[in-house]
């Protein structure tokens, strides 16, 4: 077994005892179960969960991610004095966070659907799209959180930066996009707009969800580029690739910092 997997295993064992992780799982469970109890069928519950996934998942990944890395300092220092390489250490650390976060997401949302399977059949495709996007967002934003935590030695500054990044991705950025759309209404906007979307991982996740849940509306676009991008599997392909890049690139820069860092 490689050292990365070993590190991941220790982190898993440690993190399952973390009460914040437990709280995250309970919140997801309660939300999903609550939506079912309020008289929703599977389809309506998923629609309500879209916003939860788009807002809560990046927030949790960013804040947990930075705190986790600061809290793992002792663990990192201990292991680096053992015959453990930094690459393996880093991979194990990230996997040890992203994996349980994804599992909690899958369980917290998936379990209520299984419980209600008799009364309301599971809209499998939509659920897979929702949970898949949630996991990709978790991967991307934990990677970004690692980069932030490695950038700032001071944990208060790191945590604050994580919140600012979330606020930008979730709110400010889209406000800016809307400003662009209304200001430059007379210009061809399709390509710049799609580029802007690619530059925000949260928007990417959101557009992946739109491609499933709002495809009828998206077909109303007149522009040829939109039609090609949003009307075919090209959009899904590019979206998945770009969101994966939002995991890989921050991880790569994070690893570079991690390798050069003094402990």
């Amino acid at each position: 077994m490689s050292n990365a997997v070993k590190v991941l295993r220790y982190q898993l064992r440690d993190i399952v005892r973390n009460r914040w992780m437990l709280a995250y799982g309970l919140v997801l469970l309660a939300l999903t179960e609550g939506l079912f109890r309020l008289g929703g069928d599977g389809g309506r519950v998923i629609l309500s969960l879209l916003n939860v996934v788009l807002i809560l998942v990046p927030l949790v990944a960013l804040t947990f991610g930075t705190l986790y890395l600061y809290n793992a300092r002792e663990f990192i220092e201990l292991l680096l004095t053992q015959p453990v390489g930094r690459g393996a250490m880093f991979a194990g650390l990230w996997g040890g966070l992203a994996l349980p976060l994804c599992l909690i997401l899958l369980g917290g949302i998936g379990l209520p659907f299984l419980l209600h399977v008799a009364a309301s059949p599971i809209p499998t495709r939509s659920l897979v799209v929702l949970l898949g996007t949630g996991c990709l967002l978790t991967a991307a934003f934990t990677a970004i959180a690692f980069l932030i935590a490695l950038r700032f030695e001071d944990r208060a500054r790191g945590f604050g930066s994580a919140l600012v990044v979330w606020l930008i991705c979730a709110v400010v950025y889209d406000g800016m996009v809307l400003l662009v759309v209304t200001t430059f209404r007379d210009y061809p906007l399709e390509t710049p707009l799609l580029t802007l979307i690619l530059l925000n991982p949260l928007d990417l996740g959101r557009v992946l969800l739109l491609l499933d849940f709002d495809v009828a509306a998206l077909m109303g676009y007149t522009g040829a580029v939109f039609k090609r991008f949003l009307g075919t599997s090209l959009g899904i392909g590019v979206g998945l690739a770009a969101l994966s890049a939002w995991t890989i690139v921050p991880l790569w820069f994070g690893l570079r910092r991690f390798r050069r860092r003094d402990f």
């Binding site: 220790y10 440690d14 973390n18 300092r73 002792e74 663990f75 220092e77 201990l78």
Partner: peptide
């Protein structure tokens, strides 16, 4: 090390 620091939950 000078002051041993271990993962707290282990």
């Amino acid at each position: 090390p000078q002051a041993a620091r271990f993962p707290e939950n282990l």
